[in-house]
Design a binder for these strands. Structure first.
Length: 554
RNA sequence: GCCGGAGUAGCUCAGGUGGUUAGAGCGUCGGAAUCAUAAUCCGCAGGUCGGGGGUUCAAGUCCCUCCUCCGGUACCA
């Protein structure tokens, strides 16, 4: 059980960077586990909100806009709305999916900065940087290329030489030039505000030492950073595209994306409650110690959520710190990593047009990269859909409904007479499975949760086989009624237990059962929820088979 | 280079603090059943756990070393 002292749960998925279409890697890493988690929590009656959005500022978007000859605003509009729609099509149940280009975010992140500034925590430091006079901008390290001073590789990046692996500074490069325009930059001084991360190391380590339930990879990763000593970090940039620094003398600078973006979780929470007409309610979620804050994300941004953002919040002082970071590894595609630039990725917007979104969700959840990188295979989608969703779950619901139609006129048959041991056994399994599945969800074990749920569907099929209603109907209709009643209760349970991973199918099943989907409760999964003589609707096929031709050439 | 993670049946993956014959699903093969989208249920076979070395009565699990892959490496996010 979730610890009692938490009154509400605040769940975030890593903001999606709005310079590309969201792909299955994002879903597997930070979106689907969070969505399943919040769907489970809602069913169990917890007070939970689920926050996400687009991350829309920073160097990379400015560069994309130059490359595509568009304005940054055009870039983020294109991807923000496309990704928002894609998530909806996949059934992701954000309470809000907003954007960091919003006014409310600008205000919130500026206030955050100002508070740290007023507390005297920030300091200015001047540094030499490369400046392109042609482009009128300072160049970010990785947007400078030049010759590596160690191995003479001519295309080395300003932050690292990909040829010899040496960590570089752009000023070390021989013959540096802008990656975008090829312009030869000049060295120029610029001052930036620094966040004193080093001062927070002890506090962070103490805080993290209480997090023994965190995943080992997250804790070890942070220990590595602590071991080498945290360094202060520049939190402003010389960019045009970003949240302006809220100080008169520094209007030409913007806040560093990784300072401002996580504040987006707060801004979006504000926006959510403001839209509901309750302007101050966000404070309950962000400023009460009885809020459980959970960040879902991929391994690539552990450091920002486990170290940098918590340090910012500590510095600010008013906010709750994260309770857990169930970071996932990556989901690759057919053996190699997904990459936008190489065109090797499955975009959500494309895949939801071709296949049942629940089949996609189920396939990803079943192979979620909880412990190590995993691979998505089209053949796996086909196999999961055909052999599990259609053959086990779909078939059980179908055979139950067809039978109810044929022999009981689509009415829930009465429970006349006593349950036999075999009935009691499946009903008690229903309870124990519901509990173990719940425990898996609460402990972020989504793969286990899903496979356990499917195992229960296998048990249901076994019950149907073992009780042989097709034989019993010939000589004992009352007994057969008890069996089919039980099977129908199981169908209702599946609508609840599968809801976190198969939300669309869950609703379809409830419609077939002529039951409301608005007040589903986890605990009803092991109650006798369907009344005798309750009228059912005509059955529909839940999952159609995916044929070989459909996954060829994908 | 440095820090962290991973390498387990044909395939995809599980395997706190070392301990009986290393697990699951899929696939394969065999059987039962025929209400059901030829859908179900039962069973057999199949790995010595990336390579090498070590500690131990006992190692997939701890230590050393090597190889391969992934993430981070503080101005990409």
């Amino acid at each position: 059980m979730i610890k009692k002292h938490y009154k509400r749960i605040l769940v975030t998925s890593a903001l999606t960077y709005a310079n590309g279409y969201t792909h299955l890697g994002h879903i597997a890493g930070s979106i689907l586990p969070a969505d399943m988690y919040v769907r489970y929590l809602r069913l169990s009656g917890y007070d939970v909100i689920y926050i996400c959005g687009s991350d829309e500022y920073g160097t990379a978007i400015e560069m994309t806009s130059i490359q595509e000859s568009k304005t940054p605003q055009e870039i983020i509009d294109k991807y923000h709305f496309a990704n928002k729609l894609a998530y909806e099509a996949l059934g992701v149940s954000f309470d809000i999916y907003s954007r960091t280009s919003s006014e409310i975010h600008k205000k919130t992140s500026q206030e955050f900065f100002k508070k740290l500034y007023d507390k005297g925590l920030l300091y200015l430091k001047s540094e030499k940087q490369l400046y392109s006079e042609q482009e009128g901008r300072f160049l970010a390290d990785r947007f400078v290329i030049g010759t590596c001073p160690h191995c003479r590789y001519e295309e080395a990046r300003g932050d690292e030489c990909e040829s010899c692996g040496t960590t570089l500074s752009p000023l070390e490069l021989i013959d540096p030039r802008s990656k975008i325009t090829g312009d030869r930059p000049v060295v120029k001084e610029s001052s930036h505000f620094y966040f004193p991360l080093s001062k927070f190391q002890t506090k962070l380590e103490e805080w993290m030492s209480t997090k023994s339930n965190w995943k080992a990879n997250v804790l070890n990763y942070c220990k590595g950073w602590f071991k080498s000593g945290l360094r202060d970090r520049a939190i402003t940039r010389d960019l045009k595209w970003g949240v302006p620094v809220p100080l008169e003398d520094y209007r030409d600078k913007v806040l560093y994306v990784w300072f401002e973006a996580p504040i987006g979780y707060i801004s979006n929470t504000k926006e959510y409650f403001a839209s509901k007409g309750d302007t101050d309610k966000w404070k309950e979620y962000w400023m009460s110690s009885d809020t459980k804050l959970v960040h879902f994300l991929g391994k690539d941004n552990i450091v920002f959520h486990a170290i940098f953002f918590p340090a910012m919040l500590m510095a600010h002082g008013d906010f709750v710190l994260v309770d857990n970071i169930p970071a996932n590894e990556f989901m690759n595609l057919e053996g190699s990593k997904q990459s936008k630039s190489k065109g090797h990725a499955i975009y959500v917007k494309d895949v939801v047009e071709k296949f049942n979104p629940d089949s996609i969700r189920y396939t990803i959840a079943s192979n979620m990269p909880e412990n190590k990188d995993t691979d998505f295979y089209w053949e796996d989608l086909q196999a999961r859909n055909n052999n599990e969703l259609a053959a086990i779950l779909g078939n059980f619901v179908n055979r139950t409904f067809i039978f109810s139609d044929k022999y009981f006129d689509l009415m829930v048959p009465p429970l006349s007479g006593e349950y036999q041991p075999i009935d009691k056994e499946i009903l008690s399994k229903l309870k124990s499975y519901s509990e173990s599945i719940a425990s898996y969800y609460e402990n972020y074990k989504f793969k286990d949760a899903v496979s356990e749920t499917m195992n229960l569907a296998r048990e249901a099929n076994k019950y149907f086989n073992d009780t042989e209603p097709w034989n019993v109907i010939k000589h004992d209709k009352q007994r057969c009624g008890v069996i089919i009643n039980t099977c129908l209760q199981l169908c209702y349970s599946f609508a609840i237990l599968f809801n976190p991973v198969l939300p669309f199918t869950s609703m379809k099943m409830l419609k077939m059962m002529n039951m409301s989907g608005s007040d589903l409760k986890w605990s009803d999964a092991y109650a006798v929820a369907l009344k005798e003589d309750h009228r059912l609707n005509k059955p529909e096929i839940l999952f159609s088979k995916i044929e070989n031709e459909e996954i060829k050439n994908l």
